[in-house]
């Protein structure tokens, strides 16, 4: 690649063989031609490059930038993990703080919004004649095991809640895990907005009910539940010693 090389024939003419107009070439000395090309005639040479050496300070700038880039990548790599969004997370293994505390009320609110709210409404009032209420409801303040059964396997047929009769079918929510079921029941039983003055439900209780009725496939009916737990009273309290010792703060 030398700039000194003169153009050769094969460069000048296309290889397709078609005739090619010659450059205006030698006729360019003509006065009239030069006047037509007035702009061209006063043009300076086509650009070329000088060969001044790269300034020394530039080498230092490049080196400093490359060094900074390396340091930045090491400090803010987030361990090159696809799951670290916080660049300040240190590359050393974090201290093990044990299992995380779960805010049962927050989890319950979310599970309720995603699963229950469509029928029982955000207010928990349900819909008259169609969906029974969960707010200020005798069923909700009753034995939690009854509620766990309803949530895990569903409920169908005639149901009497707060003295009103409903006849509909509630689907089973067995796909929710123990903690989610416990959370949503805790939420509707203790959140002040629902007006149910009751106590929380533990995941262990849910797990126990789930394993006791492991082979149950169809929904419960009110008579079936009454056979096990007796009629719904609304002021049911657990046998001595089973009630949790302290009421959790509903706002927590």
């Amino acid at each position: 690649m030398s700039d000194k090389k003169l153009p050769q024939d094969k460069d000048q003419y296309p290889t397709t063989g078609e005739p090619r107009e010659t450059f205006e070439g030698h006729g360019f000395d003509d006065d009239r031609l030069q006047r037509v090309h007035a702009q061209l005639m006063r043009e300076k040479e086509e650009p070329s490059e000088g060969f001044s050496p790269t300034p020394l300070f530039l080498v230092f700038v490049i080196m400093i930038l490359a060094f900074w880039g390396g340091v930045y990548m090491v400090w803010y790599s987030g361990e090159f993990s696809a799951f670290h969004f916080d660049e300040t997370k240190s590359a050393v293994v974090a201290e093990d703080t044990g299992p995380r505390e779960v805010d049962m009320m927050a989890l319950g609110r979310r599970v309720y919004a995603q699963n229950c709210q469509v029928c029982h409404q955000a207010s928990g009032e349900g819909q008259r004649g169609v969906y029974p209420p969960v707010a200020r409801a005798d069923w909700v303040q009753d034995n939690p095991e009854r509620l766990i059964k309803v949530v895990l396997h569903g409920l169908e047929g005639r149901v009497e809640v707060n003295g009103n009769t409903y006849n509909n079918a509630m689907q089973a929510f067995g796909r929710l895990n123990d903690q989610q079921v416990a959370a949503v029941l805790t939420y509707i039983r203790t959140d002040p907005d629902f007006g149910n003055d009751s106590y929380p439900v533990s995941p262990e209780l849910v797990a126990q009910v789930r394993s006791d009725f492991d082979d149950r496939r169809n929904a419960w009916t009110q008579p079936e539940l009454e056979d096990i737990h007796g009629p719904v009273t609304g002021d049911w309290s657990p046998p001595e010693g089973e009630e949790p010792e302290e009421e959790p703060d509903p706002a927590s």
Partner: peptide, 18 residues
């Protein structure tokens, strides 16, 4: 976005100084 992707983008943006 994973932190390292953004860090790489930031470093490249600063390298554009060159």
């Amino acid at each position: 976005v994973p932190a390292w992707v953004i860090s790489a983008g930031t470093v490249a943006s600063v390298m554009m100084v060159i």
